[in-house]
Design a protein around this nucleic acid. Structure first.
Lengths: 143, 143
DNA sequence: AGTATACCCTAGTAAAATTGTCAACTATTC
DNA sequence: GAATAGTTGACAATTTTACTAGGGTATACT
């Protein structure tokens, strides 16, 4: 599995906040019970997103989490990288040693895989996900 | 890191065998010293590739490993999957539970990431890597 | 003021994955 | 039969993952 629960849970939570964008804070309990994720664990993931400026919090009664920016300004890649670290298939792309000589050919592959992934996650915004979702929900209603 | 050393080392070894395709077996020692990989560890990776029919072995003096098929018939994806298992970003794509309702939107992303990766690894053959490599080596010579 | 709610932060931890190592064994060649 | 080379299974160190536990702090409401 390429993504750990960090990325998967965190993206779900971020999406939930995007769904509720503009409607006040959403509590941890609400999210964790809706997606069936451990409350304390999710809290740690959301803390990471907060420290990196993607979400804001309101403490106290009726408090909770909310996106710090518009859903149209946050990409899936930003969320995943904040939680999982850089999405690179090989450290040989992180500019270390690379003895060249034949290794190069595998390096090219790693670069292409990386591009393939980035192409998706850097071009999809939380706002896109919300739109996509409402479309799916509408279609479901027609059945 | 998306790929563990299994996939990275294994792909390098497979590439080395592709380079030597048609020229008799290559010993474990040769590969492991060239790429600076633990001999015993690489052995386990090559065993996986052998059990899945991608490489063949010759025991005894002058023995070693060789591709079981032409480099033009083996994709990077075959090698990576043999070593790493299915390349999926989320188990929700492996047809388990998926409670629907909003989760769907994240599922769509996971599918797209998967497609992005597969598009690269299933369309690149070891033969392509060999050609790419000889091109790079030629250019290097000109300098 | 007091209490309940909800986020904040740190530490610990069991299980799994990763990344190997070791050693005895079998097959082949010279 | 000695040297080379792959085969196999057991084991082990380290790291990561996925949590759990629990005390602290801010806010709202009565």
């Amino acid at each position: 599995m390429i993504l750990s629960t960090k990325g998967r849970y965190g993206l779900k939570a971020a999406f939930e906040l995007a769904l509720n964008y503009g409607g006040g804070p959403v509590s941890l309990k609400t999210i964790s019970s809706k997606y069936n994720i451990s409350e304390n664990y999710l809290e740690q993931l959301l803390a990471k997103l907060r420290k990196q400026g993607f979400i804001e919090t309101v403490r106290g009664v009726n408090g909770g989490y909310m996106l710090a920016r518009k859903p149209e300004e946050i990409t899936v890649g930003m969320i995943l990288r904040a939680l999982e670290g850089e999405m690179t298939p090989s450290d040989c792309l992180s500019g270390d040693v690379c003895t060249r000589e034949s290794v190069c050919a595998t390096r090219v592959i790693f670069e292409q895989i990386e591009k393939g992934i980035n192409n998706v996650i850097d071009n999809t915004y939380l706002g896109d996900m919300v739109r996509q979702n409402s479309k799916v929900m509408q279609e479901a209603k027609l059945l």
